[in-house]
């Protein structure tokens, strides 16, 4: 889920639950999540998908 989509959904849900004060906290969390996802240790190596929809992990045949 993209961070912008997550943030939009989270703010909408918080407001629906009467927790509008969460908005600035969610915005700060979104910034932290962005840093987290961009870190080079996080294992988000690109997984390539074959035309049949199965993942190619780059490690060769299983």
């Amino acid at each position: 889920m993209e961070i912008t989509d997550w943030l939009q959904a989270a703010i909408a849900d918080a407001e629906r639950r009467g927790l509008a004060e969460l908005r600035p906290l969610l915005q700060n969390l979104a910034q932290a999540t962005d840093i987290l996802r961009r870190a080079d240790w996080n294992g988000d190596d690109p997984i390539r998908f074959r035309s049949d929809g199965t993942a190619d992990t780059g490690r060769g045949p299983a």
């Binding site: 927790l19 969610l26 870190a39 240790w41 996080n42």
Partner: peptide, 28 residues
């Protein structure tokens, strides 16, 4: 208290994938 409640509620919006990324970060 209001500030603690809000921070706890904030935690309910952390995605599982991001929690697991953070665990990777902790290992690193």
């Amino acid at each position: 208290t209001k500030p603690v409640r809000l921070r706890l509620e904030l935690g309910r919006y952390v995605l599982a994938e991001d929690y697991l990324r953070a665990l990777d970060g902790r290992r690193a």
